[in-house]
Design a protein around this nucleic acid. Structure first.
Lengths: 148, 148
DNA sequence: ATAGAGTGTGACTATTGTAGATACACATCT
DNA sequence: AGATGTGTATCTACAATAGTCACACTCTAT
């Protein structure tokens, strides 16, 4: 169970909600509840994938590299998690057995298809939508608190 | 990267290819190239999910609990791996931040949808198909070897 | 120009998840 | 009764992940 995807999405949503201002890794780490170094590492992966950019120096920080409408959860998955879905035999199967010889090749096709299906579903949601979702949950919460 | 899914599918394919004879965990472990204890653990999960049964005692071993045509890769996934797709924040996000408060709820919906898409794709392949695939790869290999 | 702020990255540690190994009570067949 | 094999618990080894610290480097602001 790795949390890179969840944290990466959290970071992007935060950047989106923050307007266009550069956001420091320390500030982001405060919201995610982790340490700035991990945030910077994830931002590094996402920058390489073209999702974010960073400004060096004083007043610097991270920014979305393109509009939140054009960043999907699939993009995030591909940036930080791709290919880790299923592991194969740690030691490799026994090549003396017909099943052992071919099972991995046969499985790979199906796993690839499954991974594509997963990504296609993730591509249906953008960071912008997620931001709206988070914001509307906050509104509902506010309304509820006022009412009580 | 855990290999439970790959190993579990390997086991079932082996059972399918083996005809209807009970197969010992030691024999299976030989093909998978692991130890009998791990095989028995996975068989335990699959038995609880209704995919396999085991016969105790001498001459005993594991069997498919229903025809290989009626066991999908999705069934296997649900039996041994379900829910492990994405981890959430290890320490939980900061509840003092609006994004931190709601990101997990918002994400959960999408992750569930992605997991359903993954399972739906996996459900498109049965152990019987995979067995045929493995067998035909073996035939091609034999033909190639004869030709050379 | 230079001090301060902040990134990117490497190295190390702690924690957790996974697999390998062993042991043993129990069920079943012969 | 004895042999065979399952199911499960426990322990160890190993691998992956996250947390922590450190530091060179870049940029901004003054």
């Amino acid at each position: 169970m790795n949390s890179r995807f969840a944290v990466a999405v959290h970071i992007l949503t935060l950047l989106e909600q923050g307007g266009g201002e550069p956001m420091t890794s320390e500030y982001v780490a405060g919201s995610v509840n982790t340490n700035p170094s991990l945030v910077r590492r994830l931002l590094g992966s996402m920058a390489r994938a073209g999702l974010t950019t960073s400004q060096f120096g004083a007043g610097g920080g991270a920014l979305l590299a393109r509009p939140a409408e054009q960043i999907t959860l699939g993009d995030v998955y591909r940036a930080v998690d791709a290919g880790d879905l299923f592991g194969m035999h740690r030691e490799g199967p026994n090549p003396a057995c017909p099943v052992g010889r071919h099972i991995q090749g046969a499985l790979e096709t199906r796993i690839d298809a499954a991974e594509r299906a997963l990504q296609a579903e993730l591509d249906r949601t953008t960071i912008a939508e997620l931001g709206r979702d988070v914001a509307s949950r906050e509104e509902r919460r506010d309304a509820l608190q006022e009412a009580c």
